[in-house]
Amino acid sequence: MRAEYIFGVDIGGTTTKLAVITDEGQIVQKWEIPTNTSNHGVSIIPDIAAAVKLKMTQMELTKEHVIGIGVGAPGPVNMQTGILYTGVNIGWDKPVALRDELSSQTGLPVVIENDANAAALGEMWKGAGGGARDVVCVTLGTGVGGGVIVNGDIAHGIKGAAGEIGHITAVPEGGYQCNCGKKGCLETVASATGVVRLAKEEMERAEGHTALHKIMDEHNAITAKDVFDEAKNGDTAAASAVNRLTFYLGLALANLGSALNPERIVIGGGVSRAGDILLDGINERFREFAFPTVAESTEIKVATLGNDAGVIGAAWLIKYKH
């Protein structure tokens, strides 16, 4: 029997997603395991290896059935050496030989990539990228991730940090402190936490008691979903926050678009579920700020693969980069 299965792995700060995927990109099984970030994340690779070997036993797969393991990891990577430079969110504060260690513990070929890049490849291959060879993917979640695909391949840069869209400076003066050490990063105003931050600013400026104030009174907190829902309902503070978000994001994407002229820009992550109120605002700003030829030729779409994008992109790595 020819090798026809791939293990896709997407390492996150709380859980690690795994999937068994056919070489055509179809998910056969998927599951999650906790990401044990204690003790500098020393258990993460052994836990992944154990999960892969257990699934192979359960599915009665031998190494001859498996092409390899593709891994998306949260941090800059060197695909040539298989090293993840840092993974601060998972406790890896110094370089980790992720590829070689996981391969050694499973006996299978391993290819690694930054997690946002893996998600971008997934959307290009089986999602909203629609097979386009020039794609920019932006993931709006707890933070803001990104991946840049040029002529069908991920742009890495000299130290694996290309595509760090969340760290484009969006607020050059008076911006919020970002986890990366800079101030005013796109991530501080366009992530789920950034949307809430903008909304709280607008609540302070608002005259009178807004719908967001009422939610805050009842629950002692507001969420990004609350902000978008109330913006749709006409709440002035929420609408102002969403308007600022789409300004920052639309401007950043227009500048990226003018540099790269991608066929598609794909917006994913939890914030993308806001739908048209987000997409319409981004489109308006993008058309306003992008070079005219780019504004005409680049299409902005919402991602379609959801949480599966990372594991599917990791599978693409093994199929095409192994």
Rank of each mutant, 00 (worst) to 15 (best):
A199L: 04
A206D: 08
G208T: 06
L212S: 06
R244H: 12
L198C: 07
V195K: 02
N233E: 14
N233K: 15
L212W: 11
A211F: 03
G194T: 01
G208A: 07
A221R: 14
G234I: 04
G250E: 07
M203P: 00
V196D: 11
N220M: 09
T193D: 10
E230L: 15
G194F: 02
V242T: 07
L253I: 00
K225F: 05
I215K: 10
R197Q: 13
N243D: 12
H213T: 05
A238F: 12
L249N: 03
A237N: 07
T223S: 13
A211Y: 07
E218L: 10
A231M: 02
N220W: 08
A254V: 08
L245G: 03
L245D: 00
A231F: 08
K232P: 05
V242H: 10
V196T: 11
F247C: 01
D226K: 01
E218W: 08
G250Y: 03
E218Q: 15
V195S: 02
R244D: 10
H213V: 04
D235Y: 00
T210V: 06
I215G: 02
H209E: 13
Y248E: 02
V227T: 06
A211C: 05
L198P: 05
E202I: 00
V227R: 01
E230T: 14
E201M: 05
A192M: 05
T223H: 03
A231Y: 12
A231W: 12
V195Q: 12
G250R: 04
T223C: 01
E201T: 14
E218K: 13
T246R: 06
L198D: 04
N220P: 01
V242F: 09
T223V: 08
T246P: 10
A199V: 11
K225Q: 15
E230Y: 12
G194H: 06
H209P: 02
R197V: 06
E218T: 08
K214A: 14
G234T: 08
H219N: 14
I215E: 12
N255R: 07
A254W: 06
A211R: 12
H219T: 10
A252F: 04
S240T: 15
L253Q: 01
T236M: 03
A252Q: 06
R205Y: 09
L253G: 06
K225E: 15
D226C: 03
A252V: 09
M216R: 08
N243C: 05
V242K: 00
K200M: 14
R205Q: 11
A199F: 02
D226H: 10
A238I: 12
A221P: 07
T193L: 08
N233R: 13
E207P: 00
A224D: 04
F228W: 13
A221E: 15
N255S: 13
H219Q: 14
A224V: 03
A199M: 05
G234M: 09
N243Y: 04
A238H: 09
I215R: 15
R205K: 15
E218F: 08
E202P: 05
L212K: 07
E204I: 07
K200Q: 14
L245C: 01
I215D: 09
S240H: 12
A199Y: 06
A239D: 09
A254P: 09
K214R: 12
H213R: 10
A224T: 09
A192L: 07
T236F: 04
A252T: 05
G250Q: 01
H213G: 07
T236S: 15
E201Q: 15
I222S: 03
T193F: 11
N220T: 02
T193G: 10
V196G: 05
K232G: 02
L198T: 04
L198H: 13
V242Q: 10
